[in-house]
Design a binder for these strands. Structure first.
Length: 192
DNA sequence: TCTAGGATCGGCT
DNA sequence: GCCGATCCTAGAT
């Protein structure tokens, strides 16, 4: 399991290194494990696309201002939850958005939550879909990923993602952010 | 209080 | 590939 110091580095480094790691969700309905394939870095007060741009601090973004290694969950478009991992350190409100992954365990449970009509490929290939598949909501905001019994954890099983398979791309859905919309802060593992 | 807009999804063409 | 749904959040009054 990844410890606090993993998250206490620059957001871009944490984002890149999260690729290939295992996101483990424990829940009364059963456990689900997802291998991360796509993430985005959000660089805090200097990043026009980030919720904390310009030093904005509200009840919604409060966890981003806290200690690294906690989970920041927010609602977009009034209906979809998005999962983020807080990076760097207290007072530096940066985070990595978890966009996509591949289900490694708990496939039946994911299918039950996502609906039987959903194709295998599109079960967890978006931030809102991933949260639905893992039953993550705003109620999970502030969860400490580094706590031993945490219901959400991130683990390293030794699988390395070679640099040649990582693509650096612009972030999605932030056209309002001016030139920051072009910053290559999205990291994706290309399929074989 | 009121209003505008959004780190998306899924259905339809 | 395009478009509408849907309602929370933040900032303005």
């Amino acid at each position: 399991m990844l410890m606090r110091d993993f998250y206490q580095r620059t957001t871009e480094v944490v984002a890149r290194e999260l690729l290939g790691k295992l996101l483990v969700r424990t829940h009364v309905e059963g456990d689900v494990v997802v291998r991360l394939t796509e993430v985005e870095a959000y660089l805090g007060v200097g990043d026009p696309a980030c919720h904390t741009f310009g030093g904005r601090r509200t009840t919604r973004t409060e966890t981003m201002w806290g200690e690294a290694g906690h989970v920041y969950v927010y609602l977009v478009y009034g209906l979809h939850s998005c999962l983020n991992v807080v990076t760097v350190g207290a007072g530096q409100p940066e985070a990595v958005l978890i966009r996509s992954g591949v289900v490694e365990e708990g496939l039946d449970l994911v299918r039950a939550r996502r609906g039987s009509r959903v194709g295998e490929r599109s079960l967890t290939d978006g931030p809102g879909k991933l949260c639905r598949a893992l039953a993550i909501s705003r109620a999970d905001d502030g969860t400490d990923l580094c706590a031993l019994e945490a219901p959400i954890r991130i683990c390293d099983d030794g699988v390395e993602v070679p640099e040649g398979r990582v693509r650096h791309l612009p972030r999605v859905g932030i056209d309002y952010a001016g030139e920051a919309a072009d910053w290559p802060l999205r990291f994706r593992v290309e399929p074989d």
